[in-house]
Amino acid sequence: MPQSPEFVDLREAAEPVLGAVLAQNARVEHHTSPLDPARLRALVDASRLALATPDGAAFVIAFDEAGAYDSPNFLWFRERLNRFLYIDRIVVASELRGRGMARALYDRAFEAAAAAGLGQVVCEVNREPPNPGSDAFHAALGFAEIGRGAPSPGKVVRYLSRPVTGEGPT
């Protein structure tokens, strides 16, 4: 069995790690959203979970329902659900894909949600522009669609949820 990857807390990460996180995010911002150093710091400070590989090549930022976050997608969940962990973004460098890194980050998210007594992990996946790889990945993890939205012009998302324990929707 492969060894579990090592992660560092972004709250304590050195500037080179944060710079690498910004670079990784920039490569996929059409699927996530743009970040600059100040916005990254604000997100990390407000998050429930903010982890990265030591080189910043893969990372997760997630919020619980009480998080101070203004994303329309996060607010969609907050208006409808209680006690959840919202995955704002999981980004994995292309050279690390297919090695279980995203799954390891989700495992850590589910562990954090369980430790905090949160009942579900939620996220959104782009429908427009399409992201079929993310659709397949989330389906394999047991996420199910609970709604759709159009948070910005040209972007349509599928809102997904999975209980912290077990498979399938809540």
Rank of each mutant, 00 (worst) to 15 (best):
Ala57Phe: 01
Val91Asp: 10
Arg41Gly: 04
Phe110Pro: 07
Ala104Gln: 06
Val44Cys: 04
Ile90Tyr: 03
Phe74Ala: 09
Ala66Val: 01
Ala102Tyr: 02
Ala104Asp: 03
Ala52Trp: 04
Gly67Phe: 12
Asp36Asn: 14
Arg89Gln: 13
Leu51Ile: 05
Ala42Gly: 08
Asp64Cys: 04
Asp70Ala: 15
Asp45Arg: 15
Leu85Asn: 12
Pro34Gln: 10
Arg27Ile: 03
Asp70Ile: 05
Arg48Gly: 06
Tyr86Arg: 09
Ala58Glu: 05
Met101Lys: 05
Arg89Trp: 10
Val28Arg: 02
Ser47Arg: 08
Thr53Ile: 08
Leu75Lys: 12
Leu81Asp: 01
Leu85Ile: 13
Leu49His: 09
Tyr106Gln: 14
Phe59Gln: 06
Val44Ala: 03
Gly98Gln: 08
Phe110Val: 12
Asp107Ser: 12
Asp88Leu: 04
Met101Thr: 14
Ser71Leu: 03
Arg83Gly: 00
Ser47Met: 05
Ala38Ser: 12
Ala109Val: 06
Arg108Lys: 13
Gly67Pro: 07
Leu85Gln: 13
Pro72Val: 03
Glu29Met: 14
Ala68Lys: 11
Ala112Tyr: 08
Gly100Ser: 09
Ile87Pro: 02
Val28Lys: 00
Glu111His: 10
Arg99Asn: 12
Ala46Ser: 15
Ala42Gln: 14
Ala102Val: 02
Leu40Thr: 09
Trp76Ala: 03
Arg108Gln: 15
Val44Thr: 11
Tyr106Phe: 07
Val28Ala: 10
Glu111Gly: 09
Asp107Arg: 14
Leu43Asn: 11
Leu51Glu: 06
Glu95Asn: 14
Leu35Gln: 07
Tyr86Asn: 06
Thr32Trp: 02
Asp45Trp: 05
Pro72Asp: 05
Ser94Glu: 15
Leu35Thr: 09
Ala109Gly: 08
Ala109Ser: 14
Ile61Gln: 08
Val60Cys: 07
Ile90Ser: 12
Leu105Phe: 05
